[in-house]
């Protein structure tokens, strides 16, 4: 019996260049590798988790060009030229992202395994909220935003709360900015 090729580079790995958490990176990705494999096994960014590997749980959620998608279902070679954000890139300058802070303080992460994926879905929601004209924070909308991220520990209550608290900060900031620009307009 002839052995199948043991070498995953049997089909030549392709050089893929993309923005990863704001910085350019180039990897040699075997064509059948998904983004989660490249992140975890090649780039050692193990914050992105795997819970099912076929699109059923959301643990592997990352953002590609801003949109939360499943890294286990995304062929790595297809992120060429795009921007990828993972949980490791969430905070700025050593400061945790507001969501990381509220999740930690409010007990929204129990085992923490679903959390990186949750945070990526939630951060997209927060970014979107910041662009809205008259943003409001709504628990039903938050639940829908997190609808593709399974959590087995929390019953979601504290997760929705943590997202809502961070979202309210966004809304308040938007309101302050609006007031400030109003003031400026009056000057």
């Amino acid at each position: 019996m002839t052995a199948p090729s043991p070498n995953h580079a049997a089909r030549a790995a392709t050089l893929v260049t993309f923005q990863l958490n704001g910085e350019p990176v180039t990897v040699a990705a075997p064509p059948h590798w998904t983004l989660v494999e490249v992140l975890r096994y090649q780039l050692n960014l193990t914050g992105t988790k795997q819970g099912c590997d076929k699109g059923d749980c959301g643990a592997c959620t990352v953002r590609v060009d801003g949109a939360p998608v499943l890294a286990c279902m995304t062929l790595a070679v297809l992120v060429q030229g795009r921007s990828v954000e993972t949980v490791e890139g969430l905070g700025v300058g050593g400061e945790p992202h507001p969501l990381q802070r509220t999740f930690a303080e409010l007990g929204a992460a129990q085992c923490g395994f679903c959390t990186p994926g949750m945070l990526m879905s939630a951060s997209a929601y927060l970014d979107d909220l910041a662009t809205r004209d008259a943003p409001t924070v709504d628990a039903v909308e938050i639940s829908a935003v997190l609808g593709g991220n399974l959590c087995r520990c929390t019953g979601y209550t504290k997760i929705v709360q943590a997202v809502a608290v961070a979202a309210r900060e966004v809304v308040e900031r938007a309101q302050t900015l609006a007031e400030m620009s109003n003031d400026e307009a009056m000057l």
Partner: peptide, 9 residues
């Protein structure tokens, strides 16, 4: 359809 992540892709 499915989940937000799947609708995004």
């Amino acid at each position: 359809i499915a989940s937000p992540q799947i609708r995004n892709a």
